[in-house]
Write a protein that binds this DNA or RNA. Structure first.
Length: 496
RNA sequence: GCCCCCAUCGUCUAGCGGCCCAGGACGGAGCCCUCUCAAGGCUCAAACAGGGGUUCGAGUCCCCUUGGGGGCACCA
């Protein structure tokens, strides 16, 4: 390997131009997984050479989002490393040095064409329905003229001198050899007139200098990656392994997931933005498990944590075809991982959810409540609907909910009174002490269990859907239970 | 328009020439369990885009068609 000690080095190199979404997070994940399983390094590099599209705060969201997911990097702008700096705008000297080399060897040349002229050329090519490519006006400029115009301060860019003849073949790990005719490539701009490099140039220089062995990135680079290979070869460097990931399609499978679609999803309580997912009550383990399986698959046992993923993941098992996003599966994996989580760990996650909703949560109560609600949670936020009533002094059941199915309010009130008497007679309400006498009551009245328990459930919890009744009563205690059943009786009687 | 990539159940996928009248997961249907809602267990429906080759044998290899995706910026 090029860095001499056989270590795999991969990188995730986003540009801070927007929010962190699924596509980016999954690319980061795959890179991270490869580094982990091979005992290599994972590098975070910020590609901020587009000053126009730079978004304030994007880098923070990125770092926070990735860290929250549990994806850690060995080197990066915030943690430093042997190849610092890791922010491209801080590496401008380096790029200038390397572009000089390409200029000297004749692989690159200055181009003085104006934006307007370029636009005209493009339009003409469009009219002619031919391939769009720089027409090469400045390609043959003599050294004298070049130095004269540069000395005169004329604005210019630097282009790669892509051969007109021949073809270029480069190898993608999951697609095999890809060959393009050089005439179908372009004289891509390597340096912009503002003195900053473009992605094509900066990324190649950095990947080489940072000893990157595997470039794992989105498929939007698939059509330009022969060009990237050309740049690397022009320097005489060794090529990394190229891996181009598929894109995400919208849930319908019809068309690429666009920003607009992403915004639409948010209205349904779904999102492809990591930060939104966090706020929606999804947990890292669930999101990770969901993401890793979009573009990669296992034969069986698809529930995995990060460690298991890094052991099982295989780059050559990647699927080159685009994948449609399936939010239903996110729910499934999130619920599954919540169920897998130790009680105390879940408690720590649930505590702030309750707090944010305005509940004053007692930790010891919460610890007892969790086993009752855990298998009912899809997202963390679901705990509010199931268990919020545990932490409310007063509940307000709807009178009509208190009325048992096929019975009148007064009949229901009578049953509630009998329930009250039974519970009042118990020294303490537990699952064990309450169930038998209440079931006897059901039998005595000749009713369905649900009719009797339904009244009690609504009386105690205020809602028709709740965690298991007996266990719940045990937690809130006899005093509260009796108080609420008493209130329910009053309510039922007031209904006439 | 030009260039490149892709193609197994509705969706994510296993499959790298015979182990496949195609396996798993989500979702769906049914049953069981059951104090509600879940969770769990069991069962069922559901796919190799189409057409040509190659081969004793093709979901697996090749070609074409069709369909989908990406790229064609002084953006990454």
């Amino acid at each position: 390997m090029k860095n001499g000690n056989n270590t795999v080095r991969v990188r995730f190199a986003p540009s801070p131009t927007g929010r962190v979404h699924l596509g980016a997070a999954r690319t980061a994940l795959y890179n991270y997984l490869v580094a982990r399983q091979m005992g290599g390094q994972f590098i975070l590099r910020i590609e901020d050479t587009d000053t126009k599209r730079y978004v304030e705060g994007a880098e923070d969201e990125l770092i926070n989002g990735l860290r929250w997911l549990g994806i850690e990097w060995d080197e990066g702008p915030d943690v430093g490393g042997p190849y610092a700096p890791y922010r491209q705008t801080e590496r401008q000297e380096i790029y200038r040095e390397y572009i000089r080399k390409l200029l000297e060897t004749g692989y690159a040349y200055p181009c003085f064409c104006s934006l307007q002229r370029l636009e005209q050329v493009r339009q003409q090519q469009q009219r002619d329905k031919t391939q769009q490519r720089y027409d090469g006006l400045c390609r043959g400029l003599l050294p004298d003229e070049i130095s004269r115009r540069i000395a005169a301060g004329e604005e210019h860019v630097i282009r790669f001198k892509t051969p007109y003849e021949g073809s270029t073949t480069a190898h993608d790990l999951i697609r095999g050899d890809i060959t393009v005719e050089n005439k179908n490539l372009d004289d891509y701009i390597l340096f912009k007139s503002n003195g900053l490099p473009t992605y094509h140039f900066a990324a190649m220089v950095d990947d080489h200098l940072m000893g990157i062995t595997h470039v794992i990135r989105g498929s939007e680079w698939l059509s330009t990656f022969p060009l990237h290979a050309l740049i690397i070869r022009a320097f005489g460097w060794e090529e990394p392994q190229w891996v181009h990931l598929s894109v995400f399609l919208k849930p319908s499978g019809k068309g690429k997931m666009s920003k607009r679609d992403a915004d639409e999803a948010v209205k349904d309580g779904k999102s492809i933005y990591i930060k939104d997912l966090k706020e929606l009550g999804y947990i890292p383990a669930g999101i990770l498990n969901w993401m890793v399986l979009m573009g990669w698959g296992v034969a069986e046992d698809d529930v995995m944590n990060l460690n298991e993923m890094s052991e099982r993941f295989r780059l050559n098992g990647l699927n080159p075809a685009p994948a449609a996003i399936n939010f239903g599966k996110l729910d499934h994996f999130n619920g599954t991982h919540i169920r897998l989580m130790p009680t105390d760990e879940l408690a720590e996650l649930l505590q702030p959810v309750f707090a944010q909703a305005g509940y004053d949560v007692d930790d010891t109560v919460l610890l007892k409540v969790i086993p009752l609600i855990r298998e009912r949670l899809i997202t963390l936020d679901d705990c509010l609907a199931f268990a919020g009533w545990f932490f409310q002094e007063d509940i307000e059941p709807k009178p009509e909910d208190l009325v048992a199915k096929n019975l009148s309010p007064s009949e229901s009130a009578e049953i509630a009174r009998q329930i009250y008497d039974i519970l009042a007679d118990l020294p303490v309400i537990t699952h064990e002490s309450a169930e038998a006498p209440l079931r006897d009551l059901v039998e005595k009245l000749g009713l369905k269990p649900n009719q009797v328990f339904g009244i009690l459930r609504v009386a105690v919890t205020g809602q028709q859907v709740s965690p298991p009744l007996f266990e719940s009563m045990e937690i809130v205690g006899k005093e509260t239970v009796l108080k609420r059943v008493g209130q329910a009786i009053d309510l039922l009687e007031s209904m006439g």
